[in-house]
Design a protein around this nucleic acid. Structure first.
Length: 111
DNA sequence: TTCCTGACGCTTG
DNA sequence: CCAAGCGCCAGGA
């Protein structure tokens, strides 16, 4: 968060702070960054995070809890697998108990 | 420099 | 209630 070279770095930082077994939505991250209307930018940032192994993109889903970006992973199935490994139940490319495992940066990071 | 596309989200029909 | 369209910001060609 200190060095904000680009909007992406901010996103990466927040995603990296996502605790294990928890997930968040693009909109939540965008909201935390102050770009509520730019949820798409968050997703875009994740696209650039492709080469970053420090960014657990598999913990980021859309507001419905669906693994929308699953198709963008190296092995698409790895996203669901990684989530289940952390204790997150996934069914039909959708996170179960999404509201329970949901992690809001604005709440946990207390702005 | 201009046009198009894109891991989303909300409002309206 | 379900489905479709529009809005937004930024990067790449």
């Amino acid at each position: 968060m200190a060095d904000k070279g680009s909007f992406f770095e901010d996103v990466y930082d927040v995603v990296r702070l996502i605790p294990e077994g928890r997930v968040t939505s693009y909109g939540a991250i965008a909201h935390y960054l102050g770009a509520v209307k730019s949820a798409r930018m968050v997703g875009w940032a994740m696209n650039a995070a492709h080469g970053l192994d420090d960014v657990p993109a598999h913990r980021v889903v859309n507001r419905k809890g669906m693994l929308s970006g699953k198709a963008h992973f190296d092995p698409p199935e790895k996203m669901q697998q990684a989530l289940e490994e952390e204790g997150v139940k996934v069914k039909d490319d959708a996170i179960q108990d999404f509201t329970t495992v949901f992690w809001d940066p604005s709440e946990e990071l207390s702005v």
